[in-house]
Structure formats: C-alpha cells, structure tokens
C-alpha cells in the first residue's frame, strides 16, 4: 500500500510536467495527423497524458522489481540469485525513510550454494534461525540478506 502512496505523491508532483509534455507531444502528433484536429483530438490528448503516467509507473516497476534487486544482489552476494520470475513478494514501506523488501523462491542448487556462506549458521539446538548472508548499516542506511526456508529475502532502505 505504501508503494501506491509513493506513486500517488509522484503523480501529484509530476502532474504539471506530464500535462505540459503531453500537450507538446499532442501538438506534434496533430501536426503529423496521428490524432484528429478539433474536439476529437481531446481523446488523443488524454491518451498521451495517461501514456505518460503509464510509462512513469512502468519505469518505476521495472526499477524496483528488476534492476534494483539485481544490482543489490550482485553487490551483496556476488551475483543475482533471485530472478524476476522467482520473485514471490515485494514490499515498499516508509515515507521519508523508504525501504524495499524482496522475497525470492530459490531452486535447490542455489539454496545449497548460499547455505554454505551463512554468516550466522543456524544452531541445531535452538531451532530454525535465519541464515544471514549479508548485513550492514550506517547511521542512515541499512541492508540485510537472509535465507528463510527456501526463500531468499533481502531488505534495503533508510532508517
């Protein structure tokens, strides 16, 4: 839900620029006769403006679901074990201190390879504890990558 809120805020902030760019693009398209003139062209303008919002949201989704987690996994684990198709859950939280959390379902080979590099090995007697693969923080930022069952979980954000 926080992701919807963040995108609503971005939509409000970018309302005027998107409408302005859509107006310029609409004029060009009308000149090239891709959209009709007069009243019928209004629908074309609305489509161009909605297309701008769709591109903004698609770009954000591509960044948050594909590019950013792949980059962070490569940085924290050496390579991207979790692929977009293995993504099972994503959560964006926080407003001024945003954080993103990804859950990936891993295959047995990758799971076994990652289990060998746990920082905290699960103690046998105390029951299941998460196998932490990476954890770091400073006064503003934090990140953690861990295994839970057959899932690779990663969180990265500000605090």
């Amino acid at each position: 839900m926080a992701y919807d809120g963040a995108m609503l805020l971005a939509s409000i902030v970018l309302f005027i620029p998107i409408l302005a760019i859509a107006a310029i693009l609409h004029l060009i398209l009308r000149k090239l006769r891709f959209v009709p003139a007069a009243r019928a062209g209004l629908a074309g303008y609305a489509l161009v403006a909605l297309g701008g919002y769709a591109l903004l949201f698609l770009g954000s989704a591509l960044n948050l679901l594909v590019l950013k987690p792949a980059h962070l996994q490569a940085k924290y684990l050496g390579r991207a074990y979790g692929t977009p198709l293995a993504l099972r859950s994503f959560e964006h939280s926080g407003f001024q201190d945003p954080a993103d959390e990804w859950h990936y379902l891993l295959d047995e080979t990758d799971l076994a390879a990652l289990k060998r590099s746990c920082i905290v090995q699960p103690p046998v007697a105390k029951g299941p504890e998460p196998c932490v693969l990476y954890a770091d923080r400073d006064e503003r930022w934090f990140a953690e990558v861990w295994l839970e069952g057959s899932e690779l979980r990663m969180i990265d954000g500000l605090h």
């Binding site: 992701y3 919807d4 769709a54 949201f57 989704a61 993504l87 099972r88 859950s89 994503f90 964006h92």
Partner: peptide
C-alpha cells in the same frame, strides 16, 4: 500485465 504482476506481488494497484 505488469500491473497485475505488481498487484500479485505487493498489492499495489496504481499501474
């Protein structure tokens, strides 16, 4: 399509 995927993953409906 991407919006449906995003909704399934996080419940976000904007796209």
């Amino acid at each position: 399509g991407v919006g449906a995927w995003l909704f399934w993953l996080s419940g976000a409906r904007h796209l």
